[in-house]
């Protein structure tokens, strides 16, 4: 049975509590500026990643977060630094929002020893223990039980740390999603499941992969709280996620959230995204939450000069990160054995 507070979930359903929280936040211009800078930084990092991919500095797969920045930034703004985050292979924006320095991220993409995973993980596997960023994972849905284990550990150790677990709507058909949600609800784990519904599982729209339109309904079968919203406003994301985080922290109860978002680029760099129209893409770009945040700041009286300074400082951070990644050394073979086993190699 679904919980009382969540039975009315619709993309625009706001409880009084949400609105109150959002209004309170909207007044905090410096906070919004901070979130805007994070979104701007993510977008610029992604653009540099795409550029580096085109010139061969970055290999393998590259899944960009452009268009979805408000999800990761808004959600992680609702966390404490000691809360944990687990996500998918589309992990750049999440890692930056969780505090990973841009230079550690780009160096990882470049395959350098100074990367967050010493060049052994790559774009899809970003880890930063110091910032409680527990990784990007490449098998769809496979990280969801693992994230439940991270939440389980907090509960076992009687810590009030919360875990955020991100995944796409493409993951809700696979077993790992269902086993993870089932166990999280059964054992009352302090976790928030965030489905970043960007409308396409690679090239297949939701309507062709799921029998229902409202992904958050999946929570009902597990007796789990749910929420859903369209991601227009980063502060709105923060306010909604904050409610679920609070529920996890105070009541040890999980929540499934569906955040409707949109990626402006293809699934990965090799995807020309021919499965959607230019009109659809343009429509979404006009509703870009990052642009909206900028307009909100200006409307609230945040001086344009300050905004330009803020953007300039992000640009400088990205430029410094690119230079750092370019100049860093590559890892050598001696790294392989000690990162495969703790202690002596077992052959």
């Amino acid at each position: 049975m679904a919980k009382e507070s969540s039975t009315k979930a619709s993309p625009h359903a706001h409880s009084d509590r949400f609105i109150e929280a959002a209004t309170e936040r909207a007044l905090d211009v410096d906070h919004l500026a901070h979130l805007y800078r994070q979104m701007f930084l993510i977008r610029r990092v992604e653009e540099e990643s795409a550029r580096a991919y085109a010139t061969g500095k970055v290999g393998g797969f590259l899944h960009l977060y452009i268009g979805q920045e408000a999800v990761g930034v808004g959600a992680i703004a609702a966390l404490r630094p000691d809360d944990n985050v687990v996500t998918t292979y589309r992990d750049h924006g999440i890692a930056l929002a969780k505090g990973m320095p841009a230079k550690a991220l780009l160096a990882e993409l470049w395959g350098k020893k100074t990367g967050c995973s010493q060049g052994l993980g790559g774009s899809m596997h970003l880890f930063d223990k110091a910032h409680n960023m527990l990784g990007g994972y490449g098998i769809v849905g496979g990280h969801i039980p693992l994230a439940c284990g991270v939440a389980f550990a907090a509960k076992y150790q009687q810590q009030d740390r919360v875990t955020l677990c991100f995944f796409g709507e493409g993951a809700v058909s696979i077993g790992g999603f269902h086993e993870g949600l089932s166990l999280a609800a059964l054992w009352k784990l302090p976790i928030v499941f965030i489905c970043e519904n960007n409308e396409y599982a690679m090239g297949t729209p939701l309507s062709r992969t799921l029998s229902i339109e409202d992904v958050s309904q999946k929570a009902e079968a597990y007796g789990m709280h749910r929420d859903r919203l369209i991601v227009d406003d980063v502060l709105d994301v923060e306010a909604h996620v904050a409610v679920a985080v609070e529920r996890a922290r105070k009541e040890q109860l999980p929540t499934l959230m569906e955040l409707r978002t949109y990626r402006f680029r293809g699934h990965s760099m090799s995807d020309p995204a021919k499965y959607r129209t230019q009109l659809e893409l343009d429509d979404h770009k006009q509703r870009d939450p990052m642009t909206r945040a900028r307009a909100q700041l200006l409307a609230a009286g945040y001086a344009e000069d300050r905004l330009l300074d803020l953007e300039r400082s992000a640009e400088e951070e990205v430029a410094a990160a690119v230079a750092f990644a370019d100049d860093s050394p590559e890892p050598d073979l001696s790294l392989l054995a000690p990162t495969t086993y703790a202690g002596p190699f077992a052959y």
Partner: peptide, 14 residues
């Protein structure tokens, strides 16, 4: 798959 994964996540946390 669910409880093996939970074990793995818990092990990563020490």
């Amino acid at each position: 798959s669910g409880f093996a994964g939970i074990g793995i996540g818990a092990a990563m946390m020490g």
